[in-house]
């Protein structure tokens, strides 16, 4: 009887003191085939050719001298590990990353490809750790530190600083 009680007590302690691992995966829209660039020819490829190869775009818009197609794909994943002793303390770390791929195609009024750009932005979602009093509703007993915040703000700034793609650059790649 004493042995069984000890076993149950040990089991309860194990249940109360746990370490959790959490993995998260997100994706939005289909992948853009990286080799698509080899089949795009400025001045020759038509919007019809692009539709046959890739299907409808994520976005379409009107321009002063033509129109554009935009294909977009987003993936992200995260990992989190949390150790906790219920009602007492918890400690955990988390980090994640992602990738944003965009293919932008500009067509003239006749629907012929004028210029295009394919780019991928590896997105650092940052990492951080948490420590706190697990059961307390008091936020002062819960600390979160994010030494490396998500790079999305830096990405926005970089995007604004980036030079607009020139027609020659896409033509030169062909």
């Amino acid at each position: 009887m004493k042995r069984s009680l000890t076993f149950l007590l040990a089991l309860s302690m194990m249940g109360a003191s746990t370490a959790c691992v959490r993995v998260v995966n997100n994706s939005q829209d289909r992948m853009i085939p990286p080799e698509i660039g080899q089949s795009l020819r400025s001045g020759r490829t038509t919007y019809s050719d692009v539709l046959v190869r890739l299907g409808p775009p994520s976005d379409i818009g009107n321009l002063a001298e033509g129109f554009f197609f935009r294909y977009r794909n987003t993936t992200s994943s995260g990992f989190q590990i949390l150790a906790r002793l219920h009602i007492l303390v918890k400690f955990g770390v988390a980090f994640g990353g992602g990738d944003i791929s965009t293919l932008l195609l500009y067509f003239d009024q006749d629907g012929v490809l004028d210029r295009w750009i394919l780019d991928s932005y590896p997105e650092d979602l940052g990492w951080g750790y948490v420590a706190g009093h697990f059961g307390s509703p008091n936020p002062h007993l819960h600390f979160e530190f994010i030494p490396n915040p998500t790079g999305v703000h830096r990405w926005g700034m970089n995007l604004l600083e980036r030079p607009f793609p020139q027609k020659q650059s896409s033509s030169a790649e062909n």
Binding site: A19, N26, D29, L51
Partner: peptide
Amino acid sequence: IFAWSSFDVEYDRAIFFFDKNGRLEKYA
């Protein structure tokens, strides 16, 4: 002690191009 989750968004799109006479020029 292990949790896993996934969240996916997929699209089914249809696009139709009509000429100035309203006839279907191209669709995908």
